[in-house]
Design a protein around this nucleic acid. Sequence first.
DNA 1: ATAAGAATATTTGTTTACATTATTAAAAAT
DNA 2: ATTTTTAATAATGTAAACAAATATTCTTAT
Lengths: 211, 211
Amino acid sequence: MKTESLAHKAYTELRKKILSAQIPPGTRLKEDYWATKLGVSRMAVRETLTRLLGEQLVTLGAKGGYFVNSFDQQDMAQIRELREILEIGALRLAHEKITKDQVARLEKICKDFTAMVEQGYFAGACEADLKFHETLMEFSGNEKLFQLYINSHIPLFHKQLTQNSNSEDDYELTDKEHRAIVKALKDKDLALAEKVMRMHFSRGAKMIDLE
Amino acid sequence: MKTESLAHKAYTELRKKILSAQIPPGTRLKEDYWATKLGVSRMAVRETLTRLLGEQLVTLGAKGGYFVNSFDQQDMAQIRELREILEIGALRLAHEKITKDQVARLEKICKDFTAMVEQGYFAGACEADLKFHETLMEFSGNEKLFQLYINSHIPLFHKQLTQNSNSEDDYELTDKEHRAIVKALKDKDLALAEKVMRMHFSRGAKMIDLE
DNA sequence: ATAAGAATATTTGTTTACATTATTAAAAAT
DNA sequence: ATTTTTAATAATGTAAACAAATATTCTTAT
């Protein structure tokens, strides 16, 4: 209506806090508490919570009350599988229609990644990693697929995972694999691109198992 | 809390009406109207609407107000592509772990499909078709993937599409393809299963283009 | 007759208040 | 001392009231 509703402000605030794990999984979200904390009415918070409920970011307890969704190891494994399905699918779509400009954009991200690792900016490198995968999804040219990827909060888990395993070797391997994928796309070699991508993911799967 | 909140009642009601297209896409959903119609307070309706917003089933207009999401031809094409990605992914997961019992369940659905087509129960046949694909998703063994498939309302669009093109030949082809997929799964022949599935989908894509 | 502007009515945004259900704390009984 | 009951407190579910924005209708001037 006029600028932006208070409920919407509360929504973006709370959502950010949940996705960045500032509010830990399993936490109960009390309406009054967040109403005063965010400086909005309880109803605005309630609206936020039901919206997040629709986004599967929170669940309601058996006896009422909203709780931040939490994920166990099996959940994480399934999300990783899901991510592989979506990204391989996107790869297949992208390889037919990708332009030189787009290849260049991916190469730029790879370059940024390398540079940041070399200079010790590991959080920045993670960001570039994330961006690489998101960009690939975007280049599928399928808006619905892209939105699904974004809305499924997969990028978040990606971040959580990659920030755990931050050995030098990992970064180097990740870099190589990213570049291999881009090269395969450039050469229109779908089979190779898919093969490398699957390796890329199976490496991630092993990381989880180690924990 | 005690039994089931009024807001939840309103939610399931409205959701059903939207998904079954009783409320056509693009319709504006006025809070007061539905409050009186469903016999709940306006706030309950508002809660429903924000939840559906989270589910991407409704959108809010630039000047406020909630509208039932509508999909143009491009949207439908993208959803079809997305469906293919998810189902092929599920196929790959299923083929490794599928049991004899599960194969039998799929065969049963195929049989039901045939029988209903023969007896002229075409709506029933569509239902069996839907069930075939949902069951396949379930056999992926990935709960997250399955939920994503269900929550993305893809089954709905499936229904809408299949009910359009109801020529005898179509039913026969669909039947053959379903059976071929099951056989390939039984024989652990992933490549064949995938090939047939892609044919199955590309046939669906052509249907859309004809309209 | 038509367009601009004012007045009215609808509709949504927001807050407050009240009712109901859960949770916690305290008291009583065994 | 431990368990059960009862009282209190806190949290959520629901509804109503008010404020602000948008849409509609009616008037008036050209």
